[in-house]
Amino acid sequence: MTPLPEHLRQATCARTQEAENRARAALAELAKAGKPISFTAVARQAGVSTDFLYRSPDLRSRIERHRTKAGMAPSAAVDLAGDSSTSAAVRALSARLTRQQQVHHEEVTRLRRTLEAAHGENLDLRRRLARYEAD
């Protein structure tokens, strides 16, 4: 894999730094306003994804510290936020998996009923055959 040209690498770094600055500012605004601090709230305020916040060790630790200072344990915050702190990709894949599981469950149920009917027909045919062989 070829490395990125220098100008693209610099642009990427600048964009990442800008997003980090927006997230820090959003965190400060939320704390100053006394609003609940969560990954979702900071992401919405800063216009970044929650994945970005989770992947940034500095931002992640700051948000967790503020959340703990507010008296909200990380597990309680996750319970309140529900799946909103989960990335959109994970939620989409989970929904897709749930739909596939439901479709497969319905198909297995249908196949079991069909198999039961086939077993019944097979048993009936064996009994009829046994009657004819006995004659």
Rank of each mutant, 00 (worst) to 15 (best):
R110I: 06
D135R: 14
S84D: 12
S61K: 06
L80K: 13
A31H: 09
S61H: 06
D51F: 01
E64W: 02
S84N: 09
Y54G: 03
R96T: 12
A46S: 02
P74V: 06
A92K: 14
V78C: 10
R127P: 03
K32Y: 05
T109W: 05
M72T: 14
L97S: 13
E29V: 03
E116G: 05
Q17D: 12
D124G: 08
N122S: 14
S75V: 12
A46C: 02
L97Q: 12
N122C: 13
T114W: 11
E107M: 14
L80P: 00
R96F: 08
R62P: 00
S49W: 01
A23G: 02
A43W: 01
E106Y: 06
Q100I: 07
L53G: 00
D124W: 09
S85I: 06
Q102Y: 07
L4E: 07
L53M: 02
H66F: 10
A88K: 13
R131G: 07
R60W: 01
R9T: 06
L27W: 00
R126F: 03
L30T: 00
N122G: 07
S84P: 03
Q10N: 09
A73L: 13
T2A: 12
T50F: 02
A31M: 04
L125N: 10
V42Q: 02
E121H: 12
D58W: 03
R131H: 12
S56N: 15
S56D: 15
L115C: 11
T50P: 02
E116K: 11
A95I: 06
T114L: 15
L93I: 08
N21L: 08
A73W: 09
R15F: 01
R96V: 06
D58K: 07
Q101V: 14
R9G: 09
R62M: 08
G120A: 08
D79W: 09
G71H: 04
R91A: 07
I37E: 01
A25I: 05
